[in-house]
Amino acid sequence: MFEKNAGNLQKKVNNRVWLNKGMRTLFLGATLVGLIVLALLFYRVLTQGLGYLSLDFITSLPSPSFEDAGIWAGLIGSIWLMVIVAVVSIIIGVATSLYLEEYAPKNKIADIIRINIQNLAGVPSIVYGLLGLTFFVYMFSIGYRLLAGGLTMALLILPIIVVASQEALRSVPNEVKEASYGMGATKWQTIARVTLPAALPGILTGTIIALSRAIGETAPLIIVGAAAAIYTLPDSLLSKYTAMPIQIYNWTARPQDEWQYVAGAGIIVLLAILLIMNSIAVLVRNKFQKRF
């Protein structure tokens, strides 16, 4: 023992035990800050919006009078957007991550590309909005249409999907890839039959979380011209459109008090959809977790 005297030793141990308790309280406090804010948010949104929320609200188009206003156009617009975003960003994102992880030579240039993609994930969304405005709206002359919004959002979450897919691919044990190469399989055969199936749950989880970020984004959509109020549903990639967050933003900006309740109801719908998407991500992850 370091300390011969039993009393001194007890004192020293007590100090450490107290410090441990102190830290525990500190960390608990930090956790509670987040939880309390979240609870307040829920409380505010629910008390304001719940009274207005009804099936009618969900299935009604926007209207100049708040009694008739609904989120249907925003909901359908958001779903259209998500379909475009998912198709474009999954195809390009997964292909990019496969190249970077499996094919690209491990050298300085590849490292620089990898680091830059991680940095892109942190670029503010409004910058992507400006990018989308320059390229899709003007340069490719798409105009303020659904396709331009979808492509912009796809760019926005592309880095997140690439990074998540890279991590999922990296978590596939080398041993099973070696087993495949050891039988004369090509790289592509190994990817298609071993690596990708094993990485798929991770890729899906990352993708769904990225999509749930995109569905709540407002700033880039304002820039690439989602309509503040439309009275028809989009019926093609080149329709005018709106999205839930735009619709909500627009409602909150109106002067009459009643519109705040409409906005509250809209937020509830948006949150519910976010929650559903995240639950799917968790389910997918749990279902496939114990494969290796």
């Binding site: 099973v176 070696e178 087993a179 050891g182 039988m183 004369g184 090509t186």
Partner: peptide
């Protein structure tokens, strides 16, 4: 290399079956 590994098979240190 694919031909070579087809003719020259390998068994690894740790059993590594596919899932």
């Amino acid at each position: 290399v694919e031909y070579l590994r087809t003719k020259v098979g390998m068994v690894f240190q740790k059993p590594n079956p596919f899932p």
